[in-house]
């Protein structure tokens, strides 16, 4: 019974996604926009960093997503956040509007500014390789 409940909870926590893109397509688009190839090491460093430019309650991506994006994170509200790594959560990076919405919100929360196209391609490339 309990596994069933957990499965249902996981389903409920995964947003319905339009599925208009793939991680690879997003990486290609952002890299082209940036005019440079993606670098997973740079993505990892940014993800794990505490840059101090954002809001005090969210000093780093890891505040909510943890330092292991193959596992679930937790919002400050206590709600579970599905893993970011596509290997652990195939729904990730398959909906352009969803990706843009959350980069928009979270880069501002953590960095106090928008992420650049290069930073987005770096982060997705790192997450896709996990």
């Amino acid at each position: 019974m309990k596994p069933l409940i957990l499965c249902l909870a996981a389903l409920a926590a995964t947003p319905a996604l339009a599925g208009d893109t793939t991680p690879e397509a997003l990486i290609a688009t952002y890299s082209a926009e940036a005019g440079q190839p993606a670098d997973p090491a740079r993505g990892e460093a940014l993800f794990l960093a505490e840059t101090g430019g954002g809001k005090p309650d969210t000093p780093s991506c890891t505040t909510c997503h943890t330092a292991d994006p193959t596992r679930a994170g937790q919002a400050r509200t206590g709600k579970a956040i599905e893993p970011l790594a596509p290997r652990a959560n195939p729904a990730r990076f398959t909906d352009t509007a969803h990706v843009e919405k959350w980069f928009g919100r979270n880069c501002n929360s953590v960095l106090g500014r928008d992420c650049t196209a290069a930073e987005k391609s770096d982060i997705i490339t790192w997450l896709t390789g996990l």
């Binding site: 309650d57 400050r76 501002n108």
Partner: peptide
Amino acid sequence: LSDHFGEDAS
């Protein structure tokens, strides 16, 4: 919403 209890929820 850009500062929703300490987070950007725009």
